[in-house]
């Protein structure tokens, strides 16, 4: 996946801020963004979560969820074998049902990118091949991000060189929480530049806010704006290594930001909740939130992803139930 137009984040931000891009102008802008009332946000999320999705809508939703999954393994114990197995699962989620859609991407650590690319073979590339799958790599000293900028950039460039289509970077939460918004901005800009391939195209950049560490919804909203201003293609909730990871209210809040950004600039930014979404029922609530907040057009892999691993099998069980009319069991779906 590549970005067609290349707009310098700094010039875009300057335009949005309506003036010079400095640490203090950035701070003023972000602090001027409307606050969030936590109770109201959570009530709205709960309301969206109470939609009743049945029959044909549910069937559509289940298939759509699969096609939005970044099937993920991010363990110290990962091996090329494990990654190959994951790729096979991503390509053929339900061995008994060839109509089952494929996932959007395989998400791995940087050193596993070659294994993923190799395992995908001709099926590599969401945009390049029909039924293709992307390879996403977490980078920038994931999950903590505590490394020098040079290391983070090398981490990123390395994954891109190995064939990663998407980079999931983490922001420097320390810098953000201590108010050094400019530093966070510059780092995202630099990582984005490190996503540049030899041919001038860019790997897709997802910016992980690690909302569990930002702690307040106001921070999440500011960090979302900051990440988008700095050129992120996606904003992503969490690494999955910090609790709480993705929640419906946090995701709703980020969807509100991308909706507002779209209203402001006409650009469409993606959202990726990651970590903690394990059931079809939960995932459907996210689809509802996307459709009723950003709009239905966001329900496509270029604009919405689930970062998940166990979610896929639950969706498959639900799919089987819909197809057969009977409840299925864990032995009827494969362990990746």
């Amino acid at each position: 996946m590549t970005i067609d137009k290349v707009v310098s984040p700094a010039s875009r931000a300057t335009e949005v801020l309506g003036g010079e891009l400095t640490e203090s102008s950035l701070k003023r802008y972000l602090n001027g963004i409307s606050g969030v009332d936590a109770v109201g946000l959570e009530a709205r999320a709960a309301d969206l979560g109470s939609r009743s999705i049945k029959t044909t809508s549910k069937a559509w939703a289940l298939d759509r969820i699969i096609s939005l999954i970044d099937l993920t393994t991010l363990e110290g114990a990962d091996t090329p074998g494990k990654v190959r197995s994951l790729v096979a699962k991503g390509l053929t989620p339900d061995a008994a049902d060839p109509t089952c859609p494929r996932v959007a991407a395989i998400c791995v650590y940087g050193d596993m990118v070659p294994a993923a690319v190799e395992a995908l073979g001709a099926s590599h590339g969401l945009d390049e091949v029909s039924g293709g799958i992307n390879v996403a790599a977490v980078a920038t000293a994931f999950p903590s991000g505590r490394a020098s900028l040079a290391v983070k950039l090398a981490d990123t460039a390395d994954a891109v060189a190995a064939g990663a289509d998407e980079i999931d970077m983490v922001i420097d939460r320390g810098a953000f929480l201590s108010g050094r918004y400019g530093q966070v901005f510059d780092e995202i800009v630099a990582v984005k530049e490190a996503c540049r391939r030899a041919d001038g195209s860019y790997a897709h950049l997802k910016v992980i806010l690690e909302t569990g560490e930002l702690n307040t919804y106001d921070n999440v909203r500011r960090a979302s704006w900051l990440s988008i201003l700095a050129g992120g293609d996606f904003i992503k909730t969490s690494t999955g290594k910090v609790a709480p990871a993705a929640t419906l209210p946090v995701t709703l809040l980020m969807l509100e930001v991308v909706r507002d950004w779209n209203r402001l600039t006409g650009e469409k930014i993606g959202v990726k909740p990651a970590g903690g979404i394990r059931t079809s029922k939960d995932a459907i609530k996210y689809l509802v939130a996307v459709a009723e907040t950003a709009g239905e057009e966001w329900l496509q892999p270029h604009l919405f992803r689930f970062g998940a691993s166990s979610l896929l099998n639950d969706v498959l069980l639900q799919r089987q139930k819909l197809a057969t009319g009977h409840y299925s069991g864990a032995d009827y779906v494969t362990i990746d």
């Binding site: 936590a38 109770v39 702690n215 919804y217």
Partner: peptide, 9 residues
């Protein structure tokens, strides 16, 4: 009677 929402995050 005055109600106000009450929550940090």
């Amino acid at each position: 009677t005055v109600w106000h929402t009450k929550s940090l995050i």
